[in-house]
Design a protein around this nucleic acid. Structure first.
Lengths: 200, 200
DNA sequence: CTTTTGATGGTATGGTTGTACCACAAAAAC
DNA sequence: GTTTTTGTGGTACAACCATACCATCAAAAG
């Protein structure tokens, strides 16, 4: 072996170039060439580390979902470990509204992937369903706990409310992406709704 | 003039071909050729009635939003004119969840357009903001009326609840599109949430 | 009847894209 | 020191796309 180069690091470098390019001009406009230029390498190298464009896109999607998971966990941890359920729930949901530029890019690309996966069978929609389903169960459990602690109306259905929570956060996030609302407005709405669910 | 052909009718025919093609293989994969084939005409004709592809896409988007507006109005009318606010609100919101195949196609293409318009300045995002803003005001007014009629908790804020309602319906609709939930499940969730808002 | 004009088909063209192929350098293996 | 092997560059190629251009036919206008 000649140059002893870390494959994973190079792959990450190229994928980040793709994500940067997709964030500014859309996932539909990324090409092998544009990614290569953005990464500062030759097209041949992109071919070398990801044989085909499809594999490149799949790898980028995997990296994206990984990073989003990390962001959620980090935000939950930052909001104080094992504190009140309200804080944790709020942290999870607020991650869906794009505030900083990085999160905006993440959500834009993620949404483009998701919509694309509806018609493109090569992308396989599973990754977009696993995470929300996990979140749903997580939120439902937290709501049930809050009910038993007397912090929430015992008449409401934790499972359905969890779905509503995720739907409203997704809907608000999308509206921010489309420019209908500012991130602050969306945050306010989410807090309002959460306040109606978990008073105090 | 030779063949005395109705331009608008031909344009509609071609646009419908585009929508059909986009519904099955995605908006990103529509090309002048595929539209021509689907419409059963020559590529030259597509050029003739829509000079450029961009104009074709814009016309299709216009027709799409028009149709969606018609669907909402029709649904509201079908749910009984001037009946209880609950029925009208439910009708408006349920239109966002894709039930039949036609509505699924509409929402898929509409979402693709919306996401595309974020990065593609040629599509101009305004059409995607006008309709939701109208809906928001409409729903807020209905909620306020329900409050004064004593059908809703007077403590809740009609404006913020209207935003929440639209967000949850959009989020649920998207989740149905992505295959995370069936249309029936989404409908049930929406009815549940509406039941908490407007008991009775 | 002639001429103009709207509607249509076919094809050429310039550009772009994904990918395959060829070449080469340099470090490791032997 | 020779021979692999691995990373890298450049380039060629076939497909496809949007669009421009040329030709034609038939109906209306004169």
């Amino acid at each position: 072996m000649p140059k002893l180069v870390d494959h994973e690091e190079r792959r990450a470098h190229i994928i980040d170039a793709l994500l940067r390019s997709a964030a500014s001009s859309g996932l539909h406009s990324v090409t092998m060439r544009s990614v290569a230029v953005e990464a500062g390498v030759s097209v041949r190298l992109v071919q070398y580390y990801f044989d085909t464009k499809e594999q490149l896109l799949l790898a980028a999607m995997a990296r994206l979902t990984t990073r989003m998971g990390e962001r959620v966990q980090q935000r939950v941890r930052a909001s104080g470990a094992a504190t009140d359920p309200r804080g944790i729930i709020e942290a999870v949901l607020l991650e869906a509204v794009p505030t900083d530029e990085e999160s905006r890019a993440f959500h834009l690309i993620h949404t483009e992937y998701a919509v694309l996966s509806v018609t493109d069978p090569a992308l396989g929609g599973q990754p977009f369903l696993a995470a929300p389903n996990e979140m749903e169960a997580f939120l439902a459990a937290r709501l049930a706990a809050a009910q038993q602690a007397g912090d929430a109306d015992p008449r409401l259905d934790p499972c359905q409310e969890a779905v509503v929570l995720l739907a409203v956060s997704a809907g608000l996030g999308l509206s921010v992406l489309l420019g209908q609302r500012t991130a602050d407005e969306a945050t306010g709405i989410l807090r309002y709704h959460l306040g109606r669910l978990l008073p105090g």
